[in-house]
Design a protein around this nucleic acid. Structure first.
Lengths: 114, 114
DNA sequence: GGTGTCGTCAACCATTTGGTTGAGGGATTG
DNA sequence: CAATCCCTCAACCAAATGGTTGACGACACC
């Protein structure tokens, strides 16, 4: 149903998160809204490069830009992360000690027993 | 500290997850180990393409291959997802209704109050 | 030993990514 | 009006992605 859409969103969100600079931008935005030049400063990059990163975040729905004159205020929109979070949640039992289903696999005939 | 390493891992893990085919592979592997050709079947792709995807997953530490003769058994290694999960957890309060820290931000002197 | 199956390696290709520089548009301010 | 600041658009570039095909190596089986 919404599978197609969700998959697309997951692609965008995970891709947006798959970059150190973009994660740093999000961390900064978590402390409050900021302008583009302001966001660019800490990174040794051109404002232009940051603007592109912001576009990626925006495409994933993680960023909202509100223009006030020529000043651009960017603010965090964390909602799409919930989708990513839910996806990962489906695998949480694999690493948090409760290996219920994994234990089930262990009983299966192995391809290799080594 | 381990920041650099973690960032690199997060890059790899999020990137690995940022693809519908790869997520489908993980979902399949969550049901138990599988061979490469077996994994390739559902997707209308060459075994070669799947092999590449598996390499990406492997690079992120999400997959372990155990070779038994020429038969390759791939199995899920979910641990690195925990790192991704922890990262996202830092933003969970933004969407789950408890805006504790966000409320804190609200009190800060804003750059622009608009 | 020959044949077939499984999987990777290597080359190739189109597209995307992540960065640069330079030009320019739109507000604000002098 | 002119100058300046903020940001985007456009072109360009190197490298990575996501796919293909073809050849090959290693086992398994007859």
């Amino acid at each position: 149903m919404t599978r197609k859409v969700e998959e697309g969103l997951l692609d965008e969100v995970f891709h947006a998160l798959a970059n150190t600079t973009r994660r740093a931008l999000l961390r900064r935005l978590a402390e409050g809204p900021a302008r583009v030049t302001e966001l660019a400063e800490p990174h040794g990059m051109s404002v232009n490069a940051i603007s592109k990163h912001l576009f990626v975040l925006e495409r994933a729905g993680l960023l909202r830009r509100s223009r006030k004159g020529h000043i651009q205020s960017c603010l965090l929109e964390a909602a799409p992360m919930a989708t990513a979070d839910e996806w990962i949640a489906g695998y949480r039992h694999f690493w948090n000690g409760k290996f219920d289903r994994l234990a089930d696999f262990m009983e299966r005939p192995k391809v290799r027993k080594e």
